Amino acid sequence: EIEQGFLPKGWEVRHAPNGRPFFIDHNTKTTTWEDPRLKIPAHLRG
């Protein structure tokens, strides 16, 4: 299961009806299937 707590500020994870997680960026009011944490360099992750 995906943990909400480690998402960047302003992001939220939800699950589509088929169970697939998607990510909501409230900063830009966009959604994506890609986990935003995967784009953060390892040394900047919490």
Rank of each mutant, 00 (worst) to 15 (best):
E1G: 08
E1V: 10
E1K: 12
I2T: 09
I2W: 08
E3Q: 15
E3W: 07
E3R: 07
Q4K: 15
Q4D: 08
Q4G: 12
Q4I: 07
Q4H: 10
Q4T: 09
G5V: 10
G5K: 14
G5W: 12
G5I: 09
L7T: 06
L7D: 04
L7C: 01
P8M: 03
P8V: 00
P8E: 04
P8D: 03
K9G: 09
K9R: 10
G10H: 05
G10C: 03
G10A: 02
G10D: 02
G10Y: 02
G10L: 00
W11P: 02
W11Q: 05
W11C: 06
W11R: 05
W11Y: 05
V13Y: 02
R14E: 04
R14I: 04
R14H: 05
R14T: 04
H15P: 05
H15K: 15
H15I: 13
A16Q: 07
A16G: 11
A16C: 11
A16Y: 03
A16D: 13
A16K: 03
P17F: 05
P17A: 12
P17R: 10
N18R: 02
N18E: 09
N18P: 09
G19T: 00
G19W: 01
G19Q: 03
R20Y: 04
R20D: 09
R20I: 08
R20S: 12
R20V: 12
R20K: 15
R20G: 01
P21V: 11
F22C: 11
F22L: 11
F23Y: 08
F23G: 04
I24V: 12
I24L: 14
D25N: 08
D25C: 06
D25M: 00
D25Y: 02
D25L: 01
H26E: 04
H26M: 08
H26R: 05
H26Y: 02
N27Q: 07
N27E: 07
T28G: 10
T28L: 07
T28Y: 04
T28I: 01
T28N: 14
K29W: 08
K29F: 06
K29A: 09
K29Q: 13
T30V: 10
T30F: 05
T30H: 15
T31C: 13
T32V: 05
T32G: 04
W33S: 08
W33G: 06
W33M: 08
E34K: 06
E34C: 08
E34R: 08
E34A: 10
D35A: 09
D35Q: 04
D35I: 01
P36M: 00
P36H: 03
R37H: 08
R37Q: 03
R37S: 05
R37A: 04
R37G: 04
L38D: 14
L38Y: 06
L38G: 13
K39S: 12
K39M: 12
K39D: 09
P41S: 11
P41Y: 04
A42K: 12
A42S: 12
H43E: 15
H43Q: 14
H43L: 12
H43P: 15
L44W: 10
L44D: 15
L44Y: 10
L44R: 09
L44F: 06
R45G: 14
R45P: 14
R45I: 05
R45S: 11
R45Y: 12
